[in-house]
Write a protein that binds this DNA or RNA. Structure first.
Lengths: 338, 338
DNA sequence: TTGTAAGCGTTATCAA
DNA sequence: TTGATAACGCTTACAA
């Protein structure tokens, strides 16, 4: 039990300033009418006393906590952490504050996180990984909490879904591979089967088929560097070795590249063309120099936060509940003939 | 204004269960005395209604919000994000929840973050970057909010300071360099001059001097990959080229390694030995294979969180207010003769 | 073990 | 513009 928390209250400020507590309240409520002289006295007293509005109480009254809950797994990953950074920053810019909840791969863990969001009466929850149970998501929505899903698709009504044009992006890599003269194509995926990963895979396979080409698909583990190395083993030991691999994420691509060069002594892009997805920092490092797609993290964060800030009636909100953002191809040296 | 948030309250649960609201409250208060039959009725009603305790109201009454504020800059960086992950996880394990505040390099930004922590009546704040103004830190402490400083040193009383044995670690790299037969030593640092970075630098320089060796010190920019590349330019174009560089962080080391190999065509560790600090993921990637020091993130998080959970009177807490953790040398291939 | 009632620090309503 | 007063949803003596 944390003891002895003794913050100064509006009442003390009011007494010191010689005004009513309502005057104090108004002084700290943007847009409330308070005489300049009164405001001055209040501000002075507040500063002298070290007064800070109690957001717990304010949230209770206003029915608006200012809290937005970020629900994430694998948050130490380059892409995830950059998204978290963008989101917290944008939230702060609009006067909100981020609460961060870690989830693991287990099914109920998103639900648990959402329950925590409800307990703290978060104004909204942004889900970066996993998918909540329908019943708990419904509870959030019914309670007036907004829900944003990033890179998942789900038919929940009243939520904002932000996605990329993964399928189309996959088609663009294929074109690049074909132009580079590649013929034996492969796709390296994790076995997680999340919507965005599958969209990249399907998009690539379909586009290849349209060109009359086949794709070797391998899936393994999570979207990690280590999985990338293993996928390299599986792909590069084949009798008909692929000459182009599209990796579902940059992390996979980095692992695959390292294995290709150091274990299989292949030259990139001469012997093997590689593309990734996410444009994490490391993709630009000269050891990788990876051609990839940039995740528009700032744009994603902006979409999410401005949708949250938007005051619109539920009907309108619903009709604007899905955003598709563009993943830009970032040309680097891992595909021939950029 | 978020409208229409309509959560079910304890009163509604009480009515449905046919008990008083205090019975409901007690049911959700661990260790409160309530008859099994009453509890059953309450739990049933709560589940049917989708009731969740309002932490805003509970925090107001109990004078304990359950919120811990994490104050961080450069949170998308590998080391920082892994520390954030460990902290949020451990906090969740003890029933607390993390609030995340982004700071930039500017001076007042930590103060602003701390003010936010005060407004939400956070039980504690953990500062990972920057240093608060004494007056505001005092306000936190006086208000009963606990303060944890990671990798900063400051003489604030009543705060927990967690540090590593940076100086000693630096001495251990020096020994390794000397054993490897290196003679022209260099230290690559950012110009940020934070306590831990300076401790590594000073420790290295002093240890070298004790061996009768000089150290070329270069400082530039932030602790980033790009700075590492620039530092490589500065160090490796010297007429007497260093044959060993200790980099203040792994990110610097990665940049320096890439420049050394790709721009200066040097072999590591044959022509140049390199060591880093932090043991970020990328240090273990085969393109880097960097000898470095591991940041004991889990141990750091554990120290912080258990100190927060500890109920002790202020006097005792003060005498236990500083922890020094050990940074373990992780041997990889960037120094000869491991 | 249970219920009643007071109080936590705010804001919103409504006269003045 | 200002001040009293009633909420907000909860916990916690205190009494039953």
């Amino acid at each position: 039990m944390a003891q002895g928390k003794i913050y100064v209250s509006a009442l003390e400020v009011a007494e010191r300033a010689g005004v009513s507590r309502s005057a104090v309240s108004r002084t700290f409520t943007p847009g409330a009418s308070v005489a300049p002289e009164t405001r001055r006295k209040v501000v002075e007293a507040a500063e002298a006393l070290g007064y800070h509005v109690n957001q717990l109480a304010r949230g209770l009254m206003r029915n608006e906590s200012g809290i937005v809950c970020l629900i994430v797994s694998d948050m130490a990953t380059p892409y995830r952490s950059s998204l978290i950074k963008a989101l917290t920053q944008q939230l702060q810019n609009t006067g909100k504050i981020a609460m961060l909840v870690n989830t693991d791969r287990s099914d109920g863990s998103v639900d648990l996180a959402l329950r925590q969001a409800i307990r703290y009466r978060a104004d909204a929850s942004i889900i970066l990984s996993g998918l909540p149970d329908k019943s708990i998501a419904d509870l959030c929505l019914k309670s007036g909490q907004r829900l944003v899903l990033i890179n998942r698709n789900d038919d929940q009504e009243g939520t904002l879904k932000i996605n990329l044009d993964d399928r189309e992006a996959a088609g663009r890599v294929l074109t690049a591979f074909v132009r580079a003269g590649c013929e034996r194509l492969a796709f390296a995926n994790s076995d997680a089967r999340t919507p965005s990963l599958m969209a990249r895979e399907d998009g690539f396979v379909d586009a290849a088929r349209a060109h009359g080409l086949d794709v070797i698909v391998e899936r393994f583990g999570g979207t990690t560097y280590e999985s990338g190395k293993i996928l390299a083993q599986k792909l590069l030991t084949r009798s008909l070795r692929p000459d182009a691999v599209f990796c579902a994420t940059d992390l996979l691509a980095c692992g695959l590249l390292d294995a290709a060069r150091h274990q299989f002594s292949l030259s990139v892009p001469e012997d093997l063309c590689v593309a990734g997805f996410d444009d994490i920092q490391q993709a630009s490092w000269s050891s990788y120099d990876l051609t990839t797609f940039s995740q528009p993290v700032e744009a994603i964060a902006l979409e999410a936060v401005s949708w949250l800030a938007d005051e619109m009636d539920p009907a309108v909100r619903q009709s604007h509940s899905s955003r598709r953002l563009h993943a830009e191809l970032v040309w680097r040296g891992s595909i021939r003939g950029g």
